[in-house]
Nucleic acid binder design. Structure first.
Lengths: 339, 339
DNA sequence: AGCAATTCCCAAAGCGCTTTCAATTCAGAC
DNA sequence: GTCTGAATTGAAAGCGCTTTGGGAATTGCT
């Protein structure tokens, strides 16, 4: 059933039927009701391909997710972010076009989306400290929103969490507990969020007169194995740290494992604070691991990012939106006074 | 730059330019070269909206991912599956339309995709023992492929792993090591894969004259917390199991944690076998946890599923494809003789 | 009653491609 | 020379919708 047939069956023109269904005012109430009833009865759905061509809008938002070359790893936090954003898209009638490519191919993916008009805007995730994607998107004139920040953050829309403050705060918390040798198990520091977290950690240490010790810091893709390996190395040293600051729950599980293997008791012999994205399948709650954590839901971020982006698509000339979220510090059972 | 402008700039008709770019034979080699050069120079990309309308093909594949009501959990294995499928889609020129909805809304999502023609086919993941989606898709006449199986599996395309055999094999492995009280920490048994795994487990026990003990079996959404909780309960009983068969690495981590908390040493006091989907961020290899595992890459499955589905879209009348993959049993450090 | 302003509806022109059908050219066959 | 058929190219008709620019009927105002 298409519009022409529906119109014919009603003895109306396509124009009127189209207007009736799309809520335009120049249709009499009775006609609108009649049309709506007929459309429902015939289970009429406008052909989205035709509509897109006619309106020039794709009603689609593009997400380009990259995986890093070496490990081919797809960051699992994307799933939760997508779930949050997807909720909003569905509500607003947008489709979500997902493209998963190697890191170097992201630019091409964006160019293609822009050139062939398959999306109205794109969501950028996981920006690096220097991220070429931003410049490309600015040049393309495609509306976009960055989850995170990079470079000169004034010239585009972004939503980020206060990574620096969160990790400064977490470090201060450990310092207050008397810890002096605090290890940082960070994500890859080419990523903007990781770079900021490190700065927060270092600032807090310096503010207490402690020089950051490069031997206590590591940075890598945040897998469980990495957390385990990094912690194992550090714990086997003569001058082992008494506390760990970890960038993800997945890695924190590895760190915990390394500690336990060495007979250390969490919150007594060793302290761990992790950043917690509140992933649905790794709940860090009272009955779970209950790590002390800086906490900010990635899914909620996805929702809000989607809202902002759609707003931007509707009003491309509005001023840039910058939204900074604070992470909350949740005290769990993985921290305690320095031994 | 659109086709008309490009054609005008070349002094050719749209017809010829279109043909030249799309590889039709009725264009002279020189003309084709000229057109291709001009298209490259002008960075011409055909408007996908127009092309879709004209051809009637969406060049898009739909994935509808559901999250269960209570937990709102998005299964993280989807990310890896999508990454695999996405690779193939990109190669074949297909887009991936992702819809993340509540369980009950899946049917409506499919109907909508079919009615408004936004996809050429859909991928179905995580089928339940009785799954209404299959019937809906058959009725809609939309090509689809199921990752997994359900009900009468003859009437549609699917790719699955041999869940029953994998878990029977794993159970036999534990039995051979002398274990007699083996717990099953399964996924929700409304899911087809989990139901099959359970049958495999029970078959193996019965074959050795052991009656499956309902007290040793549990089933739930496979989070870390669930694994921890279920194992803790079992281990605190008087007649605790000596081995665990777990349906996912994430839950296995929780099980391991519960065991360690009770001073049990893996592979000596307690054995764990888990199913391993080879998730990129939870690598279960030599330097990682190294669980003994039944192993099958979900990402590889995603790749193959995409290939099959595209093939089906191109040849809708071909006979149904059924592909059953064996999981391999990888012996790690988490299993040993019964104490 | 006469006029302008609404109200409601329609015909037709796109949107930017693909594809059918027809036209033209030219080589080779008679 | 004429005819046939292959090789190239184009004109134009869609694909199914939205939207512009009228037009007829109705209403409101003087």
């Amino acid at each position: 059933m298409n519009l022409r047939e529906l119109a014919a069956s009603l003895g109306l023109s396509q124009t009127t039927v189209s207007r009736a269904l799309n809520g335009y005012p120049e249709v009499s109430p009775e006609t609108r009701l009649r049309v709506e009833a007929a459309a429902r009865a015939a289970n009429y759905q406008p052909n989205s391909r035709a509509r897109r061509l006619a309106t020039g809008r794709a009603m689609t938002i593009g997400h380009v997710i990259t995986h890093t070359g070496e490990t081919e790893m797809v960051n699992p936090i994307f799933a939760d972010f997508l779930a949050g954003a997807g909720e909003v898209y569905a509500r607003e009638g947008y489709d979500l076009l997902l493209s998963i490519v190697h890191e170097g191919a992201a630019e091409r993916a964006y160019r293609q989306m822009a050139a062939n008009g398959s999306v109205d805007g794109v969501m950028v995730q996981g920006p690096r400290v220097e991220d070429p994607r931003i410049g490309v998107l600015q040049e393309l004139g495609l509306p976009f929103l960055v989850h995170g920040r990079t470079g000169d953050s004034a010239g585009y829309n972004w939503l980020d969490i206060a990574n620096l403050r969160a990790f400064r705060r977490a470090t201060e918390f450990l310092l207050d507990l008397g810890h002096r040798r605090i290890a940082l198990i960070n994500g890859q520091e080419a990523m903007d969020f990781a770079a900021r977290r490190r700065r927060g950690y270092e600032e807090a240490l310096r503010a207490r007169g402690i020089a950051p010790d490069p031997a206590l810091m590591s940075a890598d893709v945040m897998t469980e194995g990495y957390g385990h390996r990094a912690a194992a190395n550090l714990l086997d040293r003569s001058n082992a740290p008494t506390a760990f600051l970890v960038s993800s729950v997945i890695s924190a599980i590895g760190v915990r494992q390394a500690a336990i293997e060495r007979g250390l008791h969490l919150g007594r012999d060793i302290s761990i604070i992790t950043h917690d994205d509140v992933l649905s399948y790794l709940n860090n709650d009272a009955e779970g691991p209950a790590f002390t954590a800086t906490r900010s839901s990635i899914r909620a971020a996805g929702r809000r990012c989607a809202e902002i982006l759609i707003e931007r698509i509707k009003h491309p000339d509005a001023p840039f939106v910058h939204e900074l979220w604070e992470a909350e510090l949740m005290v769990g059972r993985s921290t305690g006074p320095a031994p």
